[in-house]
Amino acid sequence: MNKLINKITAFLNFLLAVCLSLMIIFVFGNVVLRYAFDSGITWSEEVSRFLFIWSILIGSILALKDNEHLGVDSLIKKLSITGKKIVYVISNLMILATMVLVFIGCWKLTILNVDQSAPATGMPYAYIYAVGCLMCACMVLIVFARLYRVLAGKMEEREFIMTTDSDELVQQNETDNDNHEEGAKKS
Score class of each variant (00 low, 15 high):
Leu109Asn: 12
Ser60Trp: 00
Glu45Ser: 05
Ser117Trp: 08
Asp73Lys: 07
Pro124Glu: 13
Met23Gly: 09
Ala120Gln: 13
Ser80Val: 10
Ile90Glu: 09
Gly83Glu: 02
Ser91Gly: 10
Gly105Trp: 06
Phe28Cys: 14
Ser80Gln: 09
Gly40Cys: 07
Asn113Leu: 03
Leu93Lys: 01
Met94Pro: 12
Pro124Ser: 15
Thr42Trp: 12
Gly83Trp: 07
Ile76Met: 15
Ala120Met: 06
Ser80Trp: 09
Asp66Cys: 07
Ser91Asp: 07
Gly122Tyr: 04
Val114Gly: 03
Glu46Pro: 12
Tyr129Val: 11
Ile86Ser: 12
Leu101Met: 04
Ile95Phe: 01
Ser55Gly: 03
Tyr88Glu: 08
Val87Lys: 11
Lys78Thr: 11
Gly40Ala: 03
Cys138Lys: 04
Ile25Cys: 15
Trp107Leu: 13
Ala130Lys: 00
Ile81Ala: 02
Ala145Lys: 00
Leu70Met: 15
Trp43Asn: 06
Gly40Lys: 01
Leu96Arg: 09
Tyr127Pro: 04
Met123Tyr: 15
Ser91Arg: 00
Leu20Gln: 15
Asp73Tyr: 04
Tyr88Asp: 11
Val143Cys: 09
Phe103Asn: 02
Cys136His: 09
Met99Ala: 14
Gly153Asp: 02
Arg34Val: 00
Cys106His: 13
Ser74Cys: 14
Phe37Ser: 01
Thr121Cys: 13
Tyr125Val: 10
Lys108Asp: 15
Ala145Asp: 03
Met99His: 06
Leu62His: 01
Ala126Trp: 10
Leu62Gln: 07
Leu70Trp: 12
Lys85Met: 08
